[in-house]
Write a protein that binds this DNA or RNA. Structure first.
Lengths: 335, 335
DNA sequence: ATGAAAGCGCTAACAT
DNA sequence: ATGTTAGCGCTTTCAT
């Protein structure tokens, strides 16, 4: 591989001159500049960023760690992060924690060893979470989608407490009374919040909440709703008249399970969820949702990280972006 | 930041002993191993992969460059690549060329300078494409989705020529005769192939093909179909009775444009596309498509790259994965 | 089983 | 405006 000294020899200058060609060309005489340029082009030289970052102590690289790469919500966030990162000349490592502490930790150690300048993380829930690793190494970190107690970090997330509340209030206003909450990973702050908003609204209406938690994915939605229907058919419990799914993947699973059991939406049961479907909702606007500005969450997270690079001591910020209720057919009784 | 010599001092050994602790622990005496382990834990030491890769000449890092990160097809590919990469202990850089040669080139140079061990690329079309940069530096490269003439590289792609043919044959069998092809970036091999399959089938049926090309995205589908309808309304051209969209984003745009103009699908016009929708098709299986195994394309691409790391001289492979026709309501005349 | 010396490719700091 | 020296944190090679 061509190195800086190959170029220096080829151009008949010192390595520092070649280094300056890339880092501060204005310091070179016009003639020298041209000679170096020629040598660089002829040899097809690309500087070794590895060597540069070893000495500079920074890599112009950041890592994005999401919980589930299949989830449209995180994909939109990734787009937001990537757009801002690319504009600021940062390259992006993308990793998937699969909502698992062990995987998350392994991934974080990998990117720390690669000396990323910062991390944007949707933290997995658990007793001993992995933030300690990042804090100990002093890696600038921005949390997305999820708060974490005990860590004074920048956070960007949607206001899903309000989301849970207004979604429930909408269902109440439509006349639903037995409203159940389904899916989501217990303990994760985004779930705690939206569940909390739901419970608050139910309490305000003098109604009892009921929830079935699990995970944040489609399979969980299918399983929980399938079990719920089976229990009702055995006469063990009543079927609710409305369902709030913890996110859109859970909503999808729930809708499929209900369809399989011949329960019509919204005629027999209303269904609502969190996060919108980008394509399905354009093709057939059916599901009522609380929409979070996912792309914006990604953008703001990266912007916050850049700002922290500039000033490590600035006070941390928690940006809670507003959500939006989008009412569609799935929660409307009358046609 | 803690370095290897900090650990060495703390443990009372040489730096080489600490290095061996990480790279070949069997060479250490049990007692020495424990002392190093203690020092590593106490100091929270994580080896600097940057320094290691400088000397080793490899980084255990690969780059995935896709044309459009909004496209579900590329997202599924990314998942496949990531799953195999993670299992093989590689970290993934993710980049977006926006179907632009300049962006692609800039991104490739960035990751080359970071000394990625390999690149998986959906190459942007253009006269002077950027593969030369990779070849000159000897970076192992696997192409996805798109062939490139003049470059003897591993390729993994779907058999979209056959896809174009069977999709057209399906429409012909349903009785459609005036079938138009819409969208897609001219010159890109995936488009050339699916358009070729369409034209072959039309010719075999003794029918004239008609196509309107543009880009591979939703906006292009909307614009082209909007213009087509406007021209028909001005009496400048007839409306086709069936439409083949170059991919699913184009199909989405086409469907929205048709809806806006009050043209019903499939009653007034049939619509079919390439690539399936993951969520929309589960919620409401409407659009007839040729489905490509996107996740598998990603997996195989990464596997091919790993194999090339092991043996740089093995002959290149072109893996053409079979596609599948999924017939749904959008191309069925009778209810 | 452990260590000392050299150097990967580059840049910061100091010459000239 | 250009060059020299030292060293970033690690591993390779060659001792012991």
């Amino acid at each position: 591989m061509t190195t800086i000294s190959d170029v220096a020899v080829h151009a008949g200058v010192s390595v520092m001159t070649v280094s300056r060609y890339f880092n501060d060309p204005t310091k070179l005489a016009a003639a020298t500049f041209e000679r170096v340029k020629l040598a660089v082009d002829e040899l097809g030289y690309v500087p070794n960023a590895t060597a540069r970052s070893l000495i500079r102590g920074r890599s112009d690289t950041i890592a994005l760690v999401v919980a589930d790469i299949r989830h449209p919500f995180f994909i939109a966030i990734a787009r937001g992060v990537e757009d801002v990162a690319q504009a600021a000349k940062y390259v992006l490592f993308l990793g998937n924690s699969h909502e698992t502490l062990a995987r998350e930790r392994q991934y974080l150690e990998t990117v720390i060893s690669r000396r990323v300048d910062g991390v944007i993380l949707a933290p997995t829930h658990g007793k001993r979470h992995n933030l300690e690793v990042l804090r100990q190494r002093g890696v600038p970190t921005v949390l997305i989608d999820r708060r974490l107690p005990d860590y004074d970090l920048d956070v960007v997330r949607g206001d899903t407490f309000t989301g849970g509340r207004i979604l429930t209030e909408h269902l109440l206003a439509e006349g639903y009374r037995d409203i159940a909450f389904v899916g989501g990973t217990p303990g994760v702050s985004s779930l705690v919040d939206r569940l909390g908003g739901y419970e608050r609204a139910m309490a305000a209406a003098g109604l009892a909440p009921r929830s079935m938690l699990g995970r944040y994915d489609q399979a969980s939605g299918e399983k929980l709703v399938g079990a719920m229907v089976a229990a009702a058919r055995r006469g063990e419990a009543s079927l609710p008249d409305a369902l709030i799914a913890a996110n859109n993947m859970v909503a999808l699973g729930a809708l499929l399970a209900l369809r399989r059991h011949g329960i019509r939406v919204p005629e027999d049961m209303a269904v609502a969820g969190f996060d919108d479907f980008d394509i399905a909702s354009q093709l057939d606007p059916f599901l009522t949702v609380v929409r979070q500005p996912a792309y914006e969450i990604g953008r703001e997270a990266m912007q916050l990280l850049l700002r922290r690079f500039e000033d490590a001591d600035r006070p941390t910020e928690e940006r809670v972006l507003p959500v939006e209720l989008v009412v569609r057919r799935s929660t409307r009784r009358a046609p």
